[in-house]
Computed example of a mutant assay.
Amino acid sequence: MKEQLIKQMDRKQLVDMIYIAKSGEISKRRIKVLHVHDHTFTAYCFMKKAQRTFLINNVLSLFPVVRNERDIIS
Rank of each mutant, 00 (worst) to 15 (best):
2 K>T: 03
2 K>C: 05
3 E>Q: 11
3 E>A: 12
4 Q>W: 06
5 L>W: 00
6 I>Q: 04
7 K>F: 08
7 K>I: 02
8 Q>G: 04
10 D>F: 08
10 D>R: 15
10 D>C: 11
10 D>Y: 10
12 K>H: 13
12 K>A: 08
13 Q>K: 09
14 L>A: 08
15 V>I: 10
16 D>N: 14
17 M>Y: 03
17 M>Q: 02
20 I>F: 04
20 I>Q: 04
21 A>G: 15
23 S>Y: 07
23 S>G: 07
24 G>D: 07
25 E>V: 15
26 I>V: 15
27 S>G: 09
27 S>F: 08
27 S>V: 07
28 K>G: 07
28 K>R: 15
29 R>L: 06
30 R>P: 00
30 R>N: 05
31 I>T: 00
31 I>W: 01
31 I>A: 01
31 I>C: 01
32 K>C: 05
33 V>L: 06
33 V>M: 03
34 L>Y: 03
35 H>Q: 15
35 H>K: 15
35 H>C: 12
35 H>W: 11
37 H>I: 08
37 H>A: 10
38 D>K: 09
38 D>N: 14
39 H>G: 12
39 H>F: 13
40 T>V: 11
40 T>L: 10
40 T>K: 11
41 F>R: 00
41 F>G: 00
42 T>K: 09
43 A>R: 00
43 A>I: 03
45 C>E: 01
46 F>T: 01
46 F>S: 02
46 F>I: 03
46 F>W: 05
47 M>H: 12
48 K>N: 07
49 K>Q: 14
50 A>E: 13
51 Q>C: 10
52 R>T: 06
53 T>M: 12
53 T>K: 14
53 T>Y: 05
53 T>N: 10
54 F>C: 04
54 F>Q: 02
55 L>M: 14
55 L>W: 14
56 I>G: 01
56 I>Y: 01
57 N>S: 13
57 N>K: 12
58 N>C: 09
59 V>L: 08
59 V>M: 07
59 V>H: 03
59 V>Q: 03
59 V>N: 02
61 S>M: 11
61 S>H: 09
63 F>C: 12
63 F>I: 13
66 V>S: 13
66 V>Q: 13
67 R>F: 12
67 R>L: 11
68 N>F: 11
68 N>E: 15
71 D>P: 02
71 D>H: 09
73 I>C: 08
